[in-house]
């Protein structure tokens, strides 16, 4: 995967810590996050950073995540 051309930020979701509560999905103003299918060791299908091209690095997803499993860079 190459660098996004249009993005102005980037997030990382901690696959193992995510509990798939989905709160980050509607929180993202650019709809960059979706729910994945891969199951982590807790038994949850972690959220995934589906559309990195639109990420602005606004960090709203990270502020919303109750499990503090999203890191954000700009």
């Amino acid at each position: 995967m190459g660098d996004s051309v249009t993005a102005t930020g980037r997030i990382e979701i901690d696959f193992e810590r995510c509990k798939a509560c989905e709160l980050c999905v509607p929180a993202c103003p650019k709809v960059c996050i979706g729910m994945g299918t891969a199951i982590n060791r807790q038994g949850y299908a972690s959220a995934v950073f589906e559309r990195p091209d639109d990420c602005t690095g606004c960090a709203i997803c990270a502020e919303t995540c109750p499990d503090a499993c999203i890191l954000v860079w700009r």
Partner: peptide
């Protein structure tokens, strides 16, 4: 490109 952590 994105190296400044804005949320940790």
């Amino acid at each position: 490109r994105f190296s400044k952590a804005v949320y940790a």
